[in-house]
Design a binder for these strands. Structure first.
Lengths: 226, 226
DNA sequence: GTCGTCTTTATAAAATCTTTATACCTCCTG
DNA sequence: CAGGAGGTATAAAGATTTTATAAAGACGAC
């Protein structure tokens, strides 16, 4: 799942399948399809997708039964698509383990949003932008910087500067660029500010500030963070 | 602590609130209510419910804004109830972190089934409502704070503040963020309030308020709880 | 009215930022 | 190789901003 999420569509109407295929693929999902209950179950077992779109009106078996069979082992999201709009059908499907229920005809934008929603809550991704560089650890969400597991106290300006570096690892950031983003557009010729704060940062994050490993000077240009 | 799920209802229409209260309570949910955005945010922060039913049409602030503010820290399910049935509204809400969206008037059976569904798929990770930090003990569920086994008496504001810290251990919380969630959106520049209450909290929970171990100052930014 | 709490004001203390001064390093030139 | 130019590093001073704390006044519940 590092790549694009795989969605299994189980529906017997070929127009719906084609519509879904086009819509989903254009939003960077990988689509696999089955046109009846039997094939759908086999496909789900053989190539477990990241989620399933299930039509309730299948030719060979009731969608409710398919849903139950899937839920015996399949734990990822299942969204029901159905022409049935009765409360009884909806409640039954949801209580059988469906994560959502859309009545056909549905709006594709809404379907996409609901797919995003169930996928999001399926993998609670703590996508904290974290930089881990050997002994250095920068957590941008929590605003915490650690060196060898020790929390380092940084002032507001020092942190702003370091966060900028962390977000642009490897790139050379010019004096102008750094001054403009940290101090503001009126300070682009105050290069001395930068030197003072780079020195302070190095004192705090480098093992040997005289031979910095992380904040590298690019003479005449700026600095680079590795 | 009883294990019936607590549901926070944020809706300005009293008939809806009454309907939901009766329906939900008769299905063994514990219901707490707020009739506007401001109260809803405070209530959610103060006594985090197991899920939230949020009306989009609130008198004091757009439900979309409330949803965003909640999702800054609230990870449990949020179901939107709204008279707006446009695809744009639905997609916007779902992408802002809502788990489901029901158009008013809704069928109560379907609502209940959708509540069961989102609660079922809600995080298996039990958010530990207790903080134990050497000498400090914070029980968010029963609203009890102890220091070296002695119960500490906190005012409402002090507790709200401390509970926010406890729920975001390690993270730096900005002045703005704290002021917004504790006092409300209109107070984000009343930094002095914060200083006064931080001082009071430190007097109560720190061994040596001059050298705080728990509430750490991040000068120019905010505070951090460890 | 009394009590507990919140708001507001005042001021001292601490932390941070700016500025100045000086030493450095590297490359180039004579 | 000496000396200078341009850019860099660092310490330390002052100036400024931010924070801590006490205490007085305001407010609301009872």
């Amino acid at each position: 799942m590092n790549n694009n999420p795989v969605i299994l569509v189980i529906d017997d109407e070929s127009q719906i399948r084609r519509l879904l295929e086009i819509t989903l693929q254009s939003h960077d999902y990988k689509v696999i399809e089955a046109m009846n209950a039997h094939d759908g179950l086999i496909m789900a077992a053989n190539h477990p997708p990241d989620m399933i779109l299930l039509d309730l009106g299948l030719p060979d078996e009731s969608g409710h039964v398919v849903l139950k069979k899937l839920r015996d082992w399949y734990t990822k999201p299942i969204i029901i698509l159905s022409v049935q709009s009765s409360e009884e059908d909806i409640v039954k499907a949801l209580d059988a383990g469906a994560n959502d229920y859309l009545v056909k005809p549905f709006r594709t934008g809404e379907l996409l949003a609901r797919i995003r929603s169930v996928l999001r809550s399926a993998n609670p991704q703590e996508e904290n932008p974290v930089i881990d560089s050997e002994d250095l650890h920068i957590d941008l969400a929590s605003r915490i910087v650690k060196k060898k597991n020790e929390i380092i106290k940084l002032t507001a300006t020092e942190y702003t500067l370091l966060a900028l570096f962390a977000r642009n690892e490897g790139k050379v950031l010019t004096h102008q660029y750094l001054l403009r983003l940290v101090w503001g557009p009126g300070y682009i010729d105050q290069t001395q500010y930068l030197r003072v704060f780079i020195a302070q940062l190095r004192k705090k994050i480098e093992d040997d500030p005289n031979h910095p490993k992380h904040i590298i000077t690019e003479s005449g240009v700026g600095y680079r963070f590795v």
